[in-house]
Design a protein around this nucleic acid. Structure first.
Lengths: 195, 195, 195, 195
DNA sequence: TATGAATGAGCGTTCATTCAT
DNA sequence: GATGAATGAACGCTCATTCAT
């Protein structure tokens, strides 16, 4: 109970002030306990944050899996659509976590760098594999190579949208999502044509 | 100039440890002076960083302008190409600055938030305006709306590549740039066809 | 008994880190319980250590009495010999306790100072009285004054050897014990002669 | 200036409360500065105490050398006398330092153990060599072995007196010194006789 | 008996900052 | 221009201790 609240507060503070600015005092304040109490649950600041980041990344992975699973039976274009919207929705709903996630990737505290690299690689492999499979299921005539290319192109667009969360407001972001989907439609259309 | 060296060191430290982790002592150490000496040039930490960030953003804007200028006389596809390659090249060559830039955008120290928003908006306007103009110069038949759409789609792809600087190594990044250019070609091709 | 194990651990920790460095946590760890459990047996740190020191001093006194008792029927020179060897043996076998004992005497936690002074005085009186008696039993011709002198000289030598436990290794210490016994023999021999 | 006062205060506090009880705050208070200021002169607590102990041991060695030097031209018995009195006098006059010295030897903070061992060995060698030389100068007929034996016997007595600083008050201590000198006289007398 | 959970006080240390020189 | 010396505030953390269970 308290342990979970501490983890959550750690992520919040990290998203606002990064590692060095996220002090044990402020985390404790957010949970409404005293700083010393944190040390009953975590050995020190570093281990608290390793635990918090682990939780963050797992949650992110789980959420993505859920989104993909719920869209699994739709057409590939709709799957891309759901994935994009799902990602943005999740991140808009959990701005603190998203901010923390972004900070984590752009300037990871050196202690957890290796662990982070591992996670990112796994996440990437899983997403690429899943999407490539779904593309081939939807368009059986497509070659492995082509499916992989489409996947990577989609990731490129998704990453673009993801980065633009930082730059644009709700409305502009919506427009960019629309552009992304439009491009995907064109790319998939190309293969449609050739079939 | 000692002052310039301090600014540079501030950016370096910021890129490595963010605002709260970039201490006056470490900055001074990097310049090989004592912390007290920094206060001869800057009133306090906040003003030092405001100055450093200003320099960083100006440099970034200047660099982008230079890249665009040098490509100005090529075809629009080549311009897009140059812009993408130029951006990546610049950021690969100045990893500290890029890291600082990313950190600045993803988790800006609250004091400079307003100033940063202003800059980003101006940068965006400038880039969109410039690109829209160049598109229309290259393809006079295109409507304002269409030109604006292409520009935004290009920005989406460029942002995707930019974010992937964080995720991928040299080789993979190269592949993604290729995908981006390929997509751009298709999008422009569409208009070509309609002409 | 948990209580006894706590006392023992307290002495151990005290011998290693003195009063302020002997923490409740480390003591608890040594007994394989939690720090809170110590408070079931002792009101607080101070009372725990008062109890521990009392035990330590009593044990030391008892041991000395035992050594003296076992040598009681030998000649006075042999008694001195046994006492010296016995003391060293005991302290070599219980290095932690000896260390604690030495620390206790050289830098007593202020709270138990008075209690310690009392004990030391009693121990001293007892040892001097016992030895003086035994000398007179062995050499009836000796005056009270002379017997007292010999006792004090012996104590001086024993204290020398005791301090050198801190300074020398096994072999060198053995040599010093030999010197001590040699001197004692000479001193007693002087009276022998005069008899 | 300030640096020296800090070292002195460190020794004082150490003599009273040992390493763990000698806090930076109390040391700073004694010097009438703020705790943070200590860190301008010393990297951390450990290095402060290493410096303090080094100073302590050097001062002790110097003092002993001075005492020995001043007595150099007297007879060997008088030299022993001066040494004993000089040692006691010095330690009585610098009770804090003596207490620190004793604590240092009986329960050295593990970090400086090696350095301390080295010093003690050197001090011992120096004292033994010096005394052996002086004995032979005073009694040329004596063999090396005999001189060495006398030296070690003297050290034994001096150590006894030294330890008894902890146990006895002024008056009793005086008596013990008298006993020590008496024994030395007898021991030297033995060789006199044999000559 | 024993401990999980909590805390106030204090620890060693570093922070940004000042100011006389 | 630059720094030696200092400091108030805050840092991460550990201390002895409490108390309900």
């Amino acid at each position: 109970m308290t342990r979970d609240k501490i983890l959550e507060a750690a992520i919040n503070q990290y998203s606002l002030f990064n590692y060095h600015g996220a002090t044990m005092r402020k985390i404790a304040e957010e949970v409404d306990i005293k700083p010393a109490s944190i040390y009953f649950f975590f050995k020190n600041k570093e281990e608290l944050f390793v635990a918090a980041f682990q939780m963050l990344l797992e949650k992110h992975l789980l959420e993505m899996k859920k989104v993909l699973n719920e869209a699994r039976d739709k057409s590939i274009l709709e799957i891309f659509h759901s994935l994009l919207i799902g990602t943005i929705d999740y991140h808009k709903k959990n701005m603190h976590e998203t901010n923390a996630y972004i900070s984590l990737i752009t300037s990871p505290p050196s202690e957890i760098n290796r662990f982070l690299q591992e996670h990112m690689k796994n996440f990437d492999y899983w997403l690429i594999d899943s999407l490539t499979d779904l593309i081939k299921r939807d368009k059986p005539s497509i070659s492995n190579r082509e499916a992989s290319t489409i996947t990577k192109q989609f990731l490129l667009l998704m990453d673009g949208v993801f980065w633009e969360i930082n730059l644009y407001d709700e409305e502009e972001l919506c427009e960019q999502i629309y552009h992304a989907l439009h491009i995907i439609a064109i790319l998939l259309g190309g293969y449609e044509h050739e079939k």
